[in-house]
Design a protein around this nucleic acid. Sequence first.
DNA 1: AGTTGACATGTCAGAAGTTACATAACAAGG
DNA 2: CCTTGTTATGTAACTTCTGACATGTCAACT
Lengths: 208, 208
Amino acid sequence: MGAGDGDDSATASGSTLGYALLSLLTRGPATGYQLSSQVKAPLGHFWTAKHSQIYPELARLAAAGWVSAVEQAGPGPRAKKTYEITPDGLAALRAWLVVPPVAQPRSEITLKAYAANSGDPAAMAALYGQLAERAERMLAEYEQDAARMREAGMDHPAHPRFGNYAVLLMGIESQRTVRSWAAWLAASLHGGERIPYGGPSGARDNGY
Amino acid sequence: MGAGDGDDSATASGSTLGYALLSLLTRGPATGYQLSSQVKAPLGHFWTAKHSQIYPELARLAAAGWVSAVEQAGPGPRAKKTYEITPDGLAALRAWLVVPPVAQPRSEITLKAYAANSGDPAAMAALYGQLAERAERMLAEYEQDAARMREAGMDHPAHPRFGNYAVLLMGIESQRTVRSWAAWLAASLHGGERIPYGGPSGARDNGY
DNA sequence: AGTTGACATGTCAGAAGTTACATAACAAGG
DNA sequence: CCTTGTTATGTAACTTCTGACATGTCAACT
């Protein structure tokens, strides 16, 4: 809130979630509840958070002066708060954007594959077959979303929601990769034979 | 699982890290120190942990009877402990392997792309150009590892380290995806023009 | 009239993960 | 002789994240 005694800690370190919320708020003001549903698609394909983490984080952002809150009468016992990004918040976001990320991705399905030879081959093959099918379904869904976005001109870098399109493209590639890799793994475990991996492009058909 | 029911302490819930360590121990006995270096490649491409997390986790696994420890004289002030997976531990691992994973992957580079239009286009383009180059380098490295593994017959599902090969293949596909996606994003931001995304190339051009 | 689901905000306990602190033998190079 | 790096194991403080608890309105359906 404003002026006065502020320690001008421009170095105030935000958490990754904090920056994710700031990114969402560049699309426009939102309540904590709306933010917690917006971390579903497409952002949620690569970063999620529960409301129990979002509400405290918004309070921290407000304390740092990176967002401002406006209270209105809400449906529940507490006031509804609509948050907006401040110039300070935008500056912090912009600084964070060009810092090379170091965090390596984590993938539980790949971790399980690491122990593939300890598991029952038939059961593991079934699991990875299901994962390939799920990836197939999500891929079809994402492709439709992407087509709609292109129709809306969101594939142009100047479009205010170009970032949504960029994230969705990564989602599509990830699902494509999972589809072909999981299918290859399922077929390999099922047959017990060496199967050359063909890569994601092209047909997904043989075997699985 | 096997005969009998799961009434006993087999219901002891393990953390994901615990199962990762059990997976490593199926390759043979190891010390905590060795495990912390083994979570680098190829497992570390998709799951990592610091030694400060590994040592307490090994103690928990030992308390649950999932690993056994043998102490020897060590170089430091404490005894060196070599851990081995027990039949109970293997059973727990096998049960975990066929549980469909629900955890969604997290990617900080994709999160930053979501806010692409808030950042300076030139700086963001440079960042994603560097990421594409790094992916290129890692890809070359991984391809060599994969070729060596194929020479060693690790691409056969029956090979005891087939899991290493499966994880590495996923690593290769992931780097390929990052390379093409980051290059597309860098070019888009740099030119400010709409560029159609072509997808990863070179997936099947090296003869496997 | 009662139930379900969406809207809306928060706290608390605990698990998971990171960073820093602490100790010590042994080998290699300068 | 001294410094650096590797082997080796642990603890303490802290941040991050999950799951459960807690409250209450309003609209739609049964």
